[in-house]
């Protein structure tokens, strides 16, 4: 028992230093003002028109991205799960490969691709096709979110699907279920833990991002992540930045509780 405790100290130290203390600092700043007095102003600031709009837009865009990710990732994960091991590990590697490159670099690459005089539009105009003008709009941001976070959806789905016992599916077929019924009654319900954790893994980073909206939105679309970032890096108002972070944390916790409720008797819950 003692030995075990000893082994745990680095982790304990780690979590205190890099999780507990920073969280406490955020809460301290979030609930105080410049004079150090207690205030709720930084929290209620979310109700102001600019902040609320940014939050609403963030939620909307990350919801859309999550749905698109799910729709794109599910068929892919099913294909992967049905392949034999050699083939699918190759495809998984191909899929993960871009993630080895830096996230910023990949997003910046999209900027170059989507620009008015960018690669995609050059090809389109060469083919005399209408050009694509989505750079610096919310569409480009959704595209960036989907592109960057898709692997986070594919992997949990794949993990869940590959574990489904083939015999269960065969049994359904034996008992006369058509492919659609097999999917809705067997495959999908059994993959639900993967769906839930995939949704959380995409929704949470999409909700908090500020890089994607800056690079692909041309700083014209202000998400809640941008507001918080600017409070820290430019305005220097750590109190407001922390307060808004706390509000954002509440939204993340809500989304996690929702997934836990949908997933209560399965093992995939994150909480």
């Amino acid at each position: 028992m003692n030995k075990k405790k000893l082994l745990a100290t680095p982790y304990l130290f780690w979590s205190v230093m890099f999780i507990i203390i920073p969280l406490c600092m955020i809460f301290y700043y979030g609930f105080t003002d410049k004079t150090g007095a207690f205030t709720l102003e930084n929290i209620t600031a979310i109700a102001s028109a600019e902040h609320f709009k940014a939050l609403w837009l963030s939620i909307l865009l990350s919801l859309i991205s999550t749905v698109i990710c799910l729709l794109l990732a599910y068929p892919l994960a099913m294909i992967l799960a049905n392949m034999n091991v050699n083939q699918n590990s190759f495809i998984v590697v191909i899929f993960i490969l871009p993630m080895w490159m830096n996230f910023l670099l990949r997003t910046l690459a999209w900027q170059t691709l989507l620009e008015k005089t960018g690669v995609i539009n050059n090809i389109l105009s060469f083919l005399h096709l209408p050009t694509l003008n989505i750079i610096n709009t919310p569409y480009a941001i959704v595209l960036g979110m989907v592109y960057n976070f898709l692997p986070f959806m594919v992997l949990p789905l794949y993990n869940a699907l590959v574990k489904i016992d083939k015999n269960v599916i065969n049994a359904a077929k034996d008992l006369g279920a058509n492919p659609v019924q097999t999917f809705t009654k067997i495959t999908f319900p059994l993959s639900l833990p993967g769906v839930i954790s995939g949704i959380t893994m995409v929704f949470v980073p999409a909700l908090t991002t500020f890089v994607i909206s800056t690079l692909l939105g041309g700083s014209k679309v202000l998400l809640i992540g941008n507001v918080i970032e600017q409070e820290f890096t430019q305005t220097g108002n750590w109190y407001l930045g922390s307060g808004l972070s706390i509000v954002l944390m509440i939204f993340i916790i809500i989304s996690m509780i929702l997934s836990a409720i949908f997933d209560k008797d399965r093992e995939g819950a994150l909480l």
């Binding site: 600019e50 941008n226 430019q234």
Partner: peptide, 14 residues
């Protein structure tokens, strides 16, 4: 003054 400019700028950006 800084706070005023920043608040207005945030309104423009959002």
């Amino acid at each position: 003054g800084d706070a005023l400019y920043n608040a207005l700028w945030k309104e423009v950006k959002s």
